[in-house]
């Protein structure tokens, strides 16, 4: 079953192919094995003490949000950078690349197709990383609870730190969500990324249940 699925949905650039080496010999390249690592993630050690408290404070005061709108709720994010709400005051900034961001806002409904990209992106972010579920779609499916193509509960696929209820929540609610997230981080509870790693098999089972064309490594480093 695993082999069959892999073959059916494998992207053309990831197929096993013959490549000529610089010295003329022909070698076989399996991109999934050679270009990607199949290594599983390991949980990091959560430290305690005044130094860690200070670092937690810094993490809370410098939240870098990934600019990735997954659903209709992402229309609530642009007002946050306008004069009316101005999230820069609170140390919340937008970043364009997952490598440099800490906060992932799942803005509203999440279709299965987007979920695949979201998982890839989430796994590329450096720990500690935080997920905010925006809108009721991420909590119980919202008005799309019976759709064939949107997931119902986000916390079965990614560990969620803060939920912001509403359809849609206003930008003020988003700011309140950021405040709540800061509180959690300062209390030292912002280590949901570890939870993801510890329950890795459960999360992966859930993800693979809905993503039928799983054609990537288990963990996207």
């Amino acid at each position: 079953m695993e082999e069959e699925r892999k073959d059916k949905f494998l992207a053309p650039e990831n197929e096993i192919r013959q490549v000529a080496a610089p010295d003329g010999s022909i070698i076989e390249v399996d991109p999934l094995e050679d270009y990607f690592t199949q290594e599983r993630p390991k949980p990091y050690k959560v430290r305690k003490g005044p130094v860690e408290n200070f670092l937690n404070w810094a993490r809370a005061e410098s939240l870098w949000v990934l600019g990735f709108g997954t659903g209709c709720g992402s229309i609530e994010i642009p007002p946050l950078v306008t004069p009316r709400y101005d999230m820069f005051r609170f140390g919340v900034q937008m970043r364009a690349t997952p490598r440099q961001s800490n906060v992932f806002i799942i803005s509203g409904y999440l279709s299965v197709k987007t979920l695949k990209r979201v998982i890839r992106t989430y796994e590329q972010m450096p720990s500690p990383k935080y997920v905010m579920g925006l809108g009721s779609c991420t909590i119980n499916g919202g008005m799309y609870f019976d759709s064939y193509n949107t997931i119902n509960r986000l916390d079965h696929y990614l560990p969620v730190d803060v939920y912001i209820a509403g359809c849609m929540p206003r930008p003020e609610a988003l700011l309140a969500g950021f405040a709540k997230l800061k509180e959690l981080i300062k209390e030292g509870k912002g280590h949901k990324a570890n939870e993801y790693v510890e329950n890795f098999d459960w999360y992966k089972d859930n993800q693979k249940k809905v993503i039928n064309d799983w054609n990537m490594p288990d963990y996207n480093w």
Binding site: I139, N140, G141, F145, D146, S147, Y148, T150, I151, N152, R153, H156, N206, K209, V210
Partner: peptide
């Protein structure tokens, strides 16, 4: 029914 079978309804 498809959503209930696949998407973990709350």
């Amino acid at each position: 029914e498809y959503a209930e079978n696949n998407f973990f309804p709350r």
